[in-house]
Design a protein around this nucleic acid. Structure first.
Length: 678
DNA sequence: ATCAGAGGTGTTTTT
DNA sequence: CACCTCTGAT
């Protein structure tokens, strides 16, 4: 087994320690994926474990795919190794044990946007004012509740934590899901766990296929995911979790950093291994990362050591405006390109998606190829949802949202009133929407009946197409979707959307190639589980993305944009320190994406919410540069008084107000105070 | 039934 | 600024 030689001693230990709970604290760039894949290979090849007894879980499909292909190249066959996201794993489980769910006749997956419309609908039906009862907030509350153990145990319904009408809305939403045979993202895991908790025979059986569990990005697990692992592995199980507490950036979505901080309290005889040798970044970059993260208190503590010997290059820039910030990047990208380097080795990272705009404009102007990664995902695009709604309604004719969407787009004379009739019929006769539609068409006036029949004919034609790919093509063709696009949208917009729907045909073909006999519902489920996170960076183009989407990636040159108070850290920190620490971890993630070159940029002013605001450099700049203030010259800062010029030489000086950064003593200045209208 | 325009609202990150 | 919803006109 010569590949063990390709590992350093700690990595090797992590690979070879196969029995009992194992916590691998893997710093950024320390060969985390390598450990997981080699470990699987070791289990199969050396320990002779049947691959079907191994379960590997990650958070993104991209990571799961990568893992599969790397395992494949190590051991040849990877068919029986199950590597997937928590959600795809849960979905596969539910498919297998569907008789244990309330969805014995099948279900389809409801996506985020549709969940929101459903909540909105429920709020409306309860005659509540959507201004007072913000659908977004309630959606979020429902989601948090479903990600808690109270929900799994169907906790105390008198619980009023979420406010007066929460339970009304929650019940309405739950009923709608059940009626429409829909399952949401949170329920995938919730139902899965409920079954495991309540049906010992299922647990017994399923456990056999999970004798060796590996978890990637363990710091991002939430309470339900933790419970899932716990019940499968038990206190002494062969559970190997790999993660980095310093890279926990998903608390807002329920991730519990305590899962990794207190791992050894939940399991017995835990072996802990730290991976601190960094193979990615140069020394200068790592020292910035180490300095910065040292300001956090809630962490296990570790120092990354650079294995690369090159010094690397770190630059701080302070620009007049967001425009200059973008122009500078465009210039840098041009130089990079002229120097014969690959633009895909370069990335711009920002805190919020909205920041991409200026960079897009600047790069477009200079004709530099770029790719905005993330943002609105492919399957969230309107045109894609429009076409897929036809397939979805075929897959699940009880799905009201997909039914409504498909029957009214493109418009064909079926309006809200007619749709209400169909809904009413479906409800009173307890039939699905397609049946209801055809029934209503009999009694409706000619004109209305024509619209419905037009729609039903399209559905029939799509249904009779043999393959999934053909179904997609049929939906596009029969709805005359392209014509519709060019009739209603600007040329360029329509062209782009057209490209996307053609890409959808490719996606379907690709899916069928990979899973030749999979039913339509599998394709639809896969599309629901595919997020913008899974999009790849493009060869020969600069990548633009949020720091969240950059997790797990690396680039030779990284440009961190908008390092300003109010942006990064973001200006809405409610729980003070806890959230600030998460922002700091986010910054740590951003820095550690860089291999050789790192630029941190801030602007003195920027347009936000429509008006130009004065901005101040992020405290993170100060923190990461700690110990590098060789020649700090005191200076008067117009807003905050005494401060320092910390950046000397060719760069524009960065004035930093001392009061902003003093760690002890005076109270922290609130971020919204920092936004001063000019 | 459909669309255009006004007005109001909020704005982090996403499996 | 950008999005969404609601309204009123066609």
């Amino acid at each position: 087994m010569n590949y063990l030689e390709e590992l350093n001693p700690s990595q090797r230990e992590a690979v070879e320690h196969t029995e009992g709970p194992l916590l691998v604290l893997a710093g950024a760039g320390s060969g985390k994926t390598r450990v997981i894949t080699y470990r699987i290979a070791y289990l199969v090849n050396v320990k002779k474990i049947f691959p079907g007894k191994i379960l590997a879980v990650t958070f993104t499909n991209r990571a799961a795919g990568e893992m599969r292909s790397r395992v494949h190249s190590l051991i040849g066959i990877s068919h029986y190794v199950r590597a997937g996201t928590f959600h795809s794993t849960a979905l596969a489980f539910l498919k297998r044990y569907i008789q244990y769910t309330p969805y014995k006749n099948g279900f389809s997956v409801i996506e985020k946007d549709d969940r929101l419309s459903l909540v909105r609908q429920v709020i409306k039906e309860l005659n509540l004012d959507s201004k007072l009862f913000s659908p977004k907030k309630y959606m979020h509350a429902i989601s948090s509740y479903k990600n808690s153990m109270r929900y799994i145990e169907e906790g105390d319904p008198s619980d009023r934590d979420f406010g007066e009408r929460f339970w009304d809305i929650f019940d309405g939403y739950s009923k709608a899901l059940l009626d429409q045979r829909l399952i949401d993202f949170d329920d995938m895991l919730a139902y899965c766990l409920r079954i495991l908790l309540r049906s010992p025979e299922v647990l017994e059986e399923y456990k056999k296929s999970c004798e060796y569990i590996l978890v990637d990005e363990y710091q991002d697990t939430n309470a339900v995911q933790f419970a899932f692992l716990k019940i499968l592995a038990g206190a002494n199980g062969n559970l190997c979790v790999v993660g980095d507490d310093d890279q926990s950036i998903y608390a807002f979505r329920g991730a519990e950093i305590s899962n990794i901080l207190n791992f050894e309290k939940h399991f017995e005889n835990v072996r802990e291994i730290k991976l601190t040798q960094n193979y990615r970044s140069t020394e200068k970059i790592l020292s910035l990362a180490n300095n910065l993260i040292g300001y956090n208190f809630s962490r296990r503590g570790k120092l990354l050591k650079a294995e690369r010997s090159e010094k690397g290059e770190v630059t701080f820039r302070n620009f007049k405006s967001e425009k200059e910030e973008a122009d500078f990047l465009a210039e840098k990208a041009y130089e990079w390109y002229i120097a014969g380097r690959n633009l895909s080795d370069m990335a711009v990272l920002y805190r919020t998606n909205a920041q991409s705009r200026n960079f897009e404009i600047a790069l477009k102007r200079e004709s530099i190829p770029y790719k905005v990664v993330g943002g609105v995902g492919f399957y969230q695009r309107r045109e894609i949802k429009d076409i897929l709604s036809y397939l979805r309604v075929l897959g699940n004719p009880f799905d009201e949202i997909s039914f409504v969407r498909s029957i009214k787009t493109p418009p064909r004379g079926v309006g809200d009133q007619l749709i209400d009739k169909i809904k009413f019929y479906a409800e009173s006769e307890r039939v699905d929407f397609l049946t209801a539609a055809s029934q209503v068409a009999f009694t409706a006036p000619k004109r209305q009946a024509m619209g419905i029949n037009l729609f039903l004919n399209i559905i029939l034609t799509v249904n009779s197409a043999a393959t999934i790919t053909d179904k997609v093509s049929a939906a596009i063709r029969e709805t005359k979707y392209q014509e519709y696009l060019f009739a209603t949208e600007e040329r360029e917009e329509a062209r782009e959307r057209e490209d996307n729907i053609l890409e959808l045909i490719n996606a379907a073909a690709g899916f069928e190639e990979q899973y030749p006999d999979a039913p339509l519902s599998d394709f639809l489920a896969a599309s629901s589980l595919t997020s913008s996170e899974d999009e790849k960076t493009v060869l020969g183009a600069v990548s633009l993305m949020t720091i969240h989407s950059a997790k797990g990636l690396e680039f030779d040159s990284v440009y961190i944009a908008g390092a300003e108070e109010g942006i990064f850290p973001i200006g809405s920190l409610r729980n003070g320190e806890t959230e600030l620490e998460e922002e700091r971890r986010l910054c740590y993630v951003a820095i550690t994406r860089a291999k050789t070159y790192l630029t941190v940029a801030c602007a003195q002013s920027r347009i936000m919410h429509g008006s130009r605001l004065k901005m101040n450099p992020s405290r993170f700049i100060r923190e990461m540069r700690e110990g590098m203030l060789e020649t700090g010259i005191p200076v008067f800062h117009e807003t905050f008084g005494e401060g320092f010029i910390i950046d000397l030489g060719k760069e524009t000086p960065i004035p930093i107000a001392d009061v902003m950064f003093r760690r002890s003593g005076r109270k922290r200045i609130r971020a919204d105070f920092l936004k001063i209208k000019s």
